[in-house]
């Protein structure tokens, strides 16, 4: 039976809300799912992370889907910045979930700010084996809200063909510098963990394909793949094809890389998503318990 445990995990003065999904038997590993900035809850928009968590559980893998501070049930102030990523909170939730589930292998999947957080969290986790980094967009920065800048962007977008060329030239001129922290993080992580990068085909990808190709030639130990997601230039997960692609890719990646445990019932191992029966499932909690001071 797949079980889900909603929890408040103390982290500093705040409580980070998460749902820990547990498969039948000993988990093959645990995956931390972290949304990006923009207000998405632990389930991500369209329930994407809920579906990923349940897909993983059907394959014997536990997960913890968590929120940023101030989002969903987590306490604190909701603020997003690439310069203040939730590294401590993510590490704390990961440690809690590993302890609670008994998993010994760790992986992480995140999009945008969640992916950048993973770059920092994973090197500090000796249990880390694999990660999926979605829309890392090395050149991405917080969009300017200055009216002249917004007007200029709208104007450029409206020029057919030339608008695209102007934008490509702009991003080329921004150069390597803006993406450097992400590239450096990838170089470090590449030597420690199997990485799947899922990117949309936008100019913000920068020189990531070239860097990945370069790292692949020097890396004989770990898998490193860059896949282009369907959906063209559509934002975030607004493409339906992209949503499905991401759900299947994340589940498949960890299913391939976490070893099958001998004590997992045979029918729970590497279940293909071809309409076979789904095991019973349940949300579990102490519904009658009095509120507990967790810190």
């Amino acid at each position: 039976m797949i079980r889900e445990y909603p929890v408040f995990v103390p982290s500093g003065e705040e409580r980070i809300a998460a749902v820990i999904a547990v498969p039948a038997g000993t988990p093959r590993g645990l995956v931390l799912l972290l949304p990006g900035g923009g207000g998405a809850t632990r389930s991500q928009r369209y329930g994407m992370y809920t579906k990923v968590a349940r897909g993983l559980a059907e394959r014997g893998i536990a997960s913890a889907r968590m929120e940023w501070r101030g989002i969903g049930e987590s306490t604190g102030l909701a603020r997003y910045s690439f310069k203040a990523l939730p590294v401590e909170d993510s590490t704390t939730v990961a440690r809690f979930a590993l302890r609670a589930t008994g998993a010994t292998l760790f992986g992480m999947a995140g999009n945008c700010g969640g992916a950048r957080t993973a770059l920092t969290v994973l090197p500090g986790m000796p249990e880390a084996r694999a990660a999926v980094l979605m829309m890392l967009k090395p050149r991405s920065i917080t969009r300017s809200q200055k009216p002249p800048v917004k007007r200029m962007k709208r104007w450029v977008k409206r020029i057919p063909w030339a608008g695209t060329l102007i934008r490509q030239a702009y991003w080329a001129l921004r150069g390597w510098r803006k993406g450097t922290p992400v590239y450096d993080g990838l170089r470090v992580l590449n030597g420690m963990s199997d990485l799947l990068l899922l990117e949309a085909g936008t100019v913000k990808v920068g020189k990531l394909p070239r860097l990945v190709a370069n790292l692949q030639t020097k890396n004989g130990q770990h898998r490193l793949e860059l896949r282009t997601m369907p959906g063209g230039a559509s934002r975030s997960f607004q493409s339906l094809e992209r949503q499905q692609f991401v759900i299947e890719s994340v589940v498949e990646w960890f299913d391939q890389l976490f070893p099958v445990m001998q004590d997992i019932p045979a029918h729970e191992r590497s279940r293909p998503s071809n309409g076979q029966p789904v095991p019973p499932r349940k949300t579990v909690l102490a519904s009658e318990a009095e509120p507990t001071a967790t810190g």
Partner: peptide, 21 residues
């Protein structure tokens, strides 16, 4: 451990919260 964390008492907010199925 999991059930002990299914609720949260927050004296700053002056409330407690608990998940329910």
């Amino acid at each position: 451990l999991l059930e002990a964390h299914s609720s949260n008492r927050d004296s700053r907010l002056g409330i407690s919260e608990r998940f329910v199925c």
